[in-house]
Design a protein around this nucleic acid. Structure first.
Length: 796
DNA sequence: GAGCACTGC
């Protein structure tokens, strides 16, 4: 079957881009179809109609010159336009459903706007069907398969890309992974040459762009969920805008669920043709009545619990969704709600029904997450109906949809990432949500029938205090990775790069500085060969650097494992009632020289015991995280193979553990702390932050010099995932960063000077044996003075 | 003696 199809496609391709799609030579009919301004008359003969209906549904259609009536004719055909197979009964049934979507009635209008513009901004509430229907309209308008191109539709999350592709494949009556497919990390469900509609994560499209900055595989790119302002979406917009200027034939559609789209319209004003046109799609959700508190409430958790109980007592049937900020808060609230609701029910079962209270957050095992789809508890005949209460983080705002929710309780807070470029620290802070977020939360009450939303803040606060939109992620993140990606994408000047939301100069400066010290950038800010290689690894720059140089330390096999383990969420389980057992299990697996070595040890033990299905569980290790680490490890191994980076190891454990920590220094020499006093305090080198070892740290005692993976700001500043290192390694493998002349006077400077004097005979000159010779940066051979980097650019 | 909002390559 594939061979006959590709033959047909070759015949079409011979005819070239603008020619009729179905081998029909005279395209006069097509002109008739789309040429007139009013509802076009389709002056098709009975014979032609018969061809369209029974053999060639795309007969006579011309790419980007297609009208609604003509598309509908193709949809009603007996045969599938793309497979030439007879349509199934399921197709016809789904098509009837699609026809009732409001967006379906706007097809003609959309096709016209699409034809006339290179870039469109489209706004429509969730449930309008825009994500399933618009890509299909575009497929008919573009006929990408006749030109060897694809239509892409990007999503911020993997699950959405997968489920949408499945849904649309059904709607188009094709097999998933053939004409319609998806592409996400670890899974490419497409067939090159056959797939012409591809759902994918925005991160995946960004990866592709690194090797093809003009997006040449695509005729149209649809960017969905733009209102979420995620990092990848922000970068993609900038890159797409640049590509659209170079490629007038590349069409772009920006889709958003909130009305605040003027920003996008203005941003995509290319060729000075005025702002990009807006296409509006009506929503299809039920009305939600919104209530506010009269006075600001000081303790939102307490009020939230009271509100849930009030709804349970006084409101009609329907489930409740309460938004809180984190795991502990959620588990705590669930306990209290359950306790009080049970009491109410026992006192008066006739008016107050039974309740089930279900926590929801991402680190819950999938089986427990599934509980949100359970039916509410049954009540005895004659007594009040049962009710389900879901207490959730923001995961229920976007990622997971729970049907049957009628009441939403919104205290107006969520944990949000904030970045402090001065000390290069990302942390999580409970912050007020935006208006857009509050609206999204309220909308969760109206998915199946009219609902109610109780906001635990005043209407005045909503109007005056909340931001319109959530602050874009690009303004709240460490951009080291992003900057490396942009450079690999061919962006020369980051300071003048046209961002939708330009990051703070200090943030860019910090990123450039780090990349320069890692030798990913030369002193003129150009990507080095090492930097180009680093960009191809789906890793933070420090991890990529350490992995690439690890063969020089004969431990690339181990560094590969550690890198994978450091790329997955926390592997340690600590059930509340088994803390002592969990701690004991952890102690058994701990390597006292460093937490990174402990991670290596856990992975190796896990693999050695792969026959024992209960090993992870018995050792209080998160099985899911381990499986993820295996996955990441093999992906990284493939990239290493591409670059012919050898996988080597040292048999002697003692020597191996030294080599591993030396390799760590090559990536993390900027994350080093020195012990200060006897109180367990450390001070970070150059940033001078007072920190403590995180209680989860497995180091024996308090070594003088440590390297850390993470700086976390919680009850106090901690460093987490820590290894002991020797100061000589810093001088040897990161000589230019540890040029002591540039150091502020400090205890650690004095200590390093002592080491330097002992080693090189002088306290100020740093020479190097240049062992990490994969770049010209981290050593100063021949005693030459280290060159002062021009990077990063200084800001005022 | 803490804690991990969420997502992505």
């Amino acid at each position: 079957m594939p061979s006959s199809k590709s033959k047909r496609k070759q015949q079409r391709n011979k005819k070239g881009g603008g020619k009729p799609a179905a081998g029909h030579s005279g395209d006069t009919k097509a002109k008739n179809v789309s040429g007139s301004k009013t509802e076009p008359k389709m002056s098709l003969s009975a014979k032609e109609l018969d061809i369209i209906h029974k053999q060639q549904p795309l007969y006579g259609m011309v790419s980007r010159n297609v009208s609604g009536p003509r598309v509908r004719l193709s949809l009603e055909s007996e045969v599938n336009p793309f497979t030439k197979q007879p349509h199934t009964a399921q197709y016809k049934q789904i098509l009837e459903g699609r026809k009732t979507l409001p967006i379906f009635a706007q097809m003609d209008e959309f096709l016209k706007l699409f034809q006339q513009n290179q870039i469109i901004v489209l706004v429509g509430e969730t449930g309008a069907g825009k994500t399933t229907q618009i890509p299909q309209f575009v497929v008919f308008a573009d006929l990408p398969h006749t030109r060897g191109k694809m239509v892409a539709c990007t999503q911020p999350r993997r699950v959405s890309a997968m489920t949408l592709a499945k849904r649309v494949a059904d709607e188009m009556d094709v097999q998933l992974g053939r004409q319609v497919g998806y592409s996400i990390r670890f899974e490419d469900m497409t067939e090159p040459g056959t797939t012409f509609l591809k759902y994918m994560t925005d991160g995946m499209l960004l990866r592709e762009a690194m090797n093809d900055p003009d997006f040449t595989s695509y005729s149209t790119i649809i960017l969905d969920e733009a209102h979420e302002h995620t990092l990848a979406t922000g970068i993609l917009m900038g890159v797409l805008k640049a590509a659209a200027k170079r490629r007038p034939d590349l069409k772009i559609i920006i889709m958003s669920a909130t009305l605040d789209v003027v920003k996008f319209q203005k941003y995509f004003n290319i060729r000075s043709s005025g702002q990009a046109p807006l296409f509006k799609v009506p929503g299809r959700t039920h009305p939600v009545e919104v209530f506010y508190t009269q006075e600001p409430e000081p303790d939102y958790v307490e009020v939230a619990i009271r509100t849930v109980l009030m709804i349970h007592r006084a409101e009609g049937e329907g489930d409740i969704l309460l938004f809180l900020t984190g795991e502990e808060e959620i588990e705590d609230a669930c306990r209290k709600i359950k306790l009080e609701a049970d009491e109410l029910h026992n006192q008066d079962p006739d008016t107050v029904g039974p309740i089930s209270c279900i926590p929801l957050y991402s680190s819950l095992p999938p089986a427990q997450q599934q509980r949100i789809f359970d039916a509410p508890p049954q009540s005895k005949i004659g007594s009040a109906p049962g009710r389900k209460v879901v207490v959730s983080t923001n995961i229920a705002e976007t990622s997971l949809t729970i049907d049957g929710i009628v009441y939403v309780v919104d205290p107006g807070f969520s944990k949000q990432k904030v970045y402090n470029p001065r000390i290069r620290v990302e942390s999580l802070l409970v912050s007020p949500i935006s208006k857009a977020s509050a609206q999204q939360r309220a909308g969760r009450a109206g998915r199946t029938r009219p609902g109610k939303c109780f906001r635990l803040y005043t209407e005045k606060d909503f109007m005056k205090e909340l931001d319109e939109q959530t602050y874009p992620e690009i303004l709240r993140s460490n951009l080291a990775n992003t900057v490396l990606e942009l450079l690999k994408l061919g962006v020369k000047d980051l300071v003048t790069f046209d961002f939708v939301d330009a990051p703070a100069p200090e943030t860019l400066m910090r990123a450039l500085e780090l990349l320069n010290y890692l030798a990913a950038l030369d002193d003129d800010g150009n990507l080095t060969p090492l930097g180009a290689m680093m960009a191809d690894f789906p890793l933070d720059p420090q991890l990529a650097k350490m992995l690439i140089v690890s063969p020089e330390f004969r431990c690339s096999n181990e560094i590969l494992t550690i890198t994978a383990m450091m790329s997955v969420p926390n592997i340690w389980l600590q059930p509340a009632n088994q803390r002592r057992e969990a701690d004991a299990a952890k102690a058994r697996l701990t390597v006292p020289d460093g937490d990174q070595l402990t991670l290596l040890n856990v992975y190796n033990e896990y693999r050695q015991n792969s026959g024992d299905k209960n090993w992870a569980w018995n050792n209080y290790i998160n099985q899911r995280a381990m499986a993820q680490a295996e996955n990441v490890r093999s992906q990284l191994e493939r990239v290493m193979e591409q670059f012919e980076i050898e996988l080597v190891s040292i048999a002697d454990t003692k020597k191996l553990y030294v080599a591993v920590r030396q390799a760590l220094v090559n990536g993390f020499f900027m994350q080093v702390a020195h012990r200060k006093g006897q109180q367990g305090n450390y001070i970070t080198v150059k940033d001078n932050q007072v920190v403590a070892l995180h209680p989860s740290c497995g180091l024996e005692g308090q070594p003088e010099w440590v390297l850390f993976n993470e700086f976390v700001l919680t009850t106090r500043p901690y460093i987490r995932t820590v290894s002991e290192i020797k100061p000589e390694w810093l001088l040897e493998y990161a000589a230019s960063y540890y040029d002591l002349r540039s150091f502020p006077e400090s205890e650690y400077k004095t200590a390093l000077q002592r080491v330097s004097a002992k080693r090189y005979g002088t306290a100020t000159t740093t020479t190097s044996s240049k062992r990490s010779g994969s770049n010209g940066k981290s050593g100063t051979p021949d005693g030459r003075e280290p060159k002062k980097p021009k990077f990063p650019p200084q800001t005022k």
